[in-house]
């Protein structure tokens, strides 16, 4: 565990909690892509199946359980409790365009052709693009609530911090995982445009709105 890993995990946790609290406090999931949230639930579920096969630490187990629990709580909010506020008309990204290539790739490029390993690889690839329905929704409506942008910022920051964690691990432990690194790079790059808007607009007190 190094400082980048820990702050990355905490940033990820912050993002998830911010989203849940936003929906709970405003009693609304307006502006949130349910499709992205479904993809994140699939990511956590397929990656953390190792909860059943290996124990690493109390920290590791608790975080995995919290991530999975929050992912499904978010889905419950969006598709059941606050369904009336869900903006499905603008959540029109075709997720099969992500699921099919990502599924195919995880069968072709993995470390080991075994069910758990393929599911782990699938979750890594899927996570890298899971935010696209949300970004697509924002580009369609042309704006995002400020609290939603905080969510996106911490969610993007988390994988960027993991990139530093992997540099650290390569340097001090001689350890690297090409699948995670390439997917993590793709994931972080997808947020760059948003990071720019967040820094130049939201942090200066303006609402995030895109030119028509």
């Amino acid at each position: 565990m190094n400082v980048f890993r820990l702050t990355g995990d905490l940033s990820h946790l912050a993002a998830i909690i911010i989203l849940l609290l936003k929906i709970w406090k405003t009693r609304s999931c307006a502006g949130i892509s349910g499709k992205s949230q479904i993809l994140f639930a699939v990511v956590f579920t397929s990656r953390y199946l190792d909860l059943l096969t290996s124990f690493i630490s109390l920290y590791n187990t608790s975080m995995k359980v919290i991530y999975i629990g929050c992912a499904y709580a978010t889905l419950y909010f969006v598709y059941m409790k606050f369904k009336a506020t869900y903006d499905g008309n603008h959540d029109t990204f075709r997720v099969e365009f992500l699921l099919v290539p990502v599924g195919g790739l995880s069968f072709l490029v993995n470390h080991d052709f075994s069910p758990l390993e393929i599911l782990w690889t699938f979750s890594i690839y899927l996570e890298s693009v899971a935010i696209l329905p949300q970004l697509f929704m924002i580009s369609k409506t042309g704006e995002a609530e400020t609290i939603t942008t905080h969510y996106l910022f911490f969610l993007g920051l988390y994988r960027a911090l993991y990139l530093f964690n992997w540099i650290w691990r390569f340097y001090f432990e001689g350890f690297f995982d090409m699948i995670a690194i390439v997917a993590g790079l793709v994931q972080t790059i997808l947020y760059c445009d948003f990071f720019y808007l967040y820094i130049t607009k939201v942090l200066k007190g303006k609402k995030l709105s895109l030119p028509a």
Binding site: R5, S54, M63, K64, D177
Partner: peptide
Amino acid sequence: SNEPLRHDEL
């Protein structure tokens, strides 16, 4: 081996 990353990281 990628064993550490697969289970240890989140």
